[in-house]
Write a protein that binds this DNA or RNA. Structure first.
Length: 231
DNA sequence: AACGACCTCAACCGCCCTGCT
DNA sequence: CAGCAGGGCGGTTGAGGTCGT
């Protein structure tokens, strides 16, 4: 481990991801699935650490990610869940389809923290701050998705079949706002219900069979570009 | 228009947990 | 049981954007 980390350190690139890197990662995952984050970057043609790839995928490239501002309902849910769960962002994220822990964490720090402090000065995370105290039952009752295997969690923690089942479709489809230009295109396509089939196909099929009915989808374009580039 | 203050959020870091041998 | 490797999580940082003066 130490050795591999050292080797990794020597060549890994850091900082913002380029569109080229994005489409390399997407194309690789599309073709081979997620099998080992730490070993994927090299065959994918990326000079990134496995962690960096994972983070990029989970927080940004995953096709089921909701973008845009949080709704009132989501805001309230975050406040309520934080009250009981504390800073367990991943658990909170599991109850908000399409939202990542990072996004929720950021949103909390930038928007909700002040409000929380103003209204709830004492209670913060009293009950559930220690995650070891969480039983499966408690997690279930709070609405967190059942824990899957590591690989499943990685590729699907909020994206594959059972977890992302039908009840998420509408919520995903509702979204049409996006912060970035490229993902604005992507998200506007997610807004159409047929796009949901993309994510289903991609994440339920190890071969990531893509439907071919959205020719201008950014995500697909990236993948196709990567194919052209010979990844 | 220029500048500084403030805000946002993508990305990194380091620790911890889990699974495998 | 112990050690190792990989993945997940929460905290933090800093670059870029926005706002106010």
């Amino acid at each position: 481990m130490v050795k591999s980390q050292q080797c990794e350190k020597a060549a890994v690139k850091k900082g913002p991801w380029s569109p080229d890197e994005d489409h390399k990662l997407i194309a690789y995952i599309q073709r081979y699935g997620i099998w080992n984050w730490s070993q994927m970057p090299k065959p994918a043609g990326l000079a990134r650490s496995g962690k960096s790839c994972r983070l990029r995928w989970v927080n940004y490239l995953r096709p089921d990610i909701k973008r845009g501002s949080f709704s009132k309902e989501e805001e309230e849910a975050i406040l309520k869940l934080h009250e009981t769960m504390g800073n367990r962002w991943s658990a909170i994220a599991a109850t908000l389809p399409g939202r990542t822990d990072n996004e929720i964490k950021n949103y909390w720090h930038t928007h909700l923290k002040k409000r929380f402090k103003a209204t709830e000065p004492v209670q913060e995370a009293q009950v559930f701050n220690d995650k070891k105290k969480f039983s499966e039952t408690e997690i279930f009752l709070l609405g967190e998705a059942p824990k899957a295997s590591k690989l499943e969690t990685t590729s699907t923690s909020s994206s594959s079949g059972p977890v992302h089942g039908d009840h998420n479709k509408d919520q995903i489809a509702e979204q049409n706002i996006c912060a970035s230009e490229t993902f604005g295109e992507l998200q506007s396509l997610w807004a159409e219900s047929h796009i949901v089939r993309y994510s289903e196909a991609i994440f339920t099929d190890p071969g990531f069979t893509l439907y071919n009915d959205a020719s201008n989808d950014y995500w697909v374009n990236l993948s196709m570009q990567a194919e052209i580039d010979g990844i």
